[in-house]
């Protein structure tokens, strides 16, 4: 799992690339949280999931955990560019009520 972040007009864009499962999640959490703290002055955040080739329920916990971290800084979070399988998991778990899909 690779995570990159950049800002444009006070929006932080976080890009995830690879597979999110129990094995990859711990390192991904640390890296994402480091980037969230680095971009804490942003007004909103968009997590781009187009590069996520696999996600199981670990991804639900991962996204809600990052949502909580962004919220500490008052930053609303959105997800975008989901694959069909990722969308299916997030839709059924109700994640979009916290993290809207754009």
């Amino acid at each position: 799992m690779q995570i990159k972040a950049m800002t444009n007009n006070n929006i932080v864009y976080m890009t995830l690339q690879g597979e999110i499962d129990e094995h990859s999640a711990e390192r991904a959490r640390r890296e994402a949280d480091r980037l969230i703290d680095e971009y804490a002055a942003a007004e909103s955040a968009v997590i781009d999931l187009s590069g996520v080739s696999f996600m199981d329920s670990t991804g639900i916990g991962f996204l809600i955990g990052r949502y909580k971290r962004f919220r500490r800084f008052g930053i609303p979070v959105y997800v975008t560019n989901l694959t069909q399988s990722t969308d299916k998991i997030l839709e059924m778990s109700g994640v979009y009520t916290l993290i809207p899909k754009i």
Partner: peptide, 13 residues
């Protein structure tokens, strides 16, 4: 540990 509790639900679905 950021577990969602959705594992069995996903298997069922």
């Amino acid at each position: 540990e950021e577990r969602s509790g959705m594992g069995f639900t996903i298997m069922q679905t």
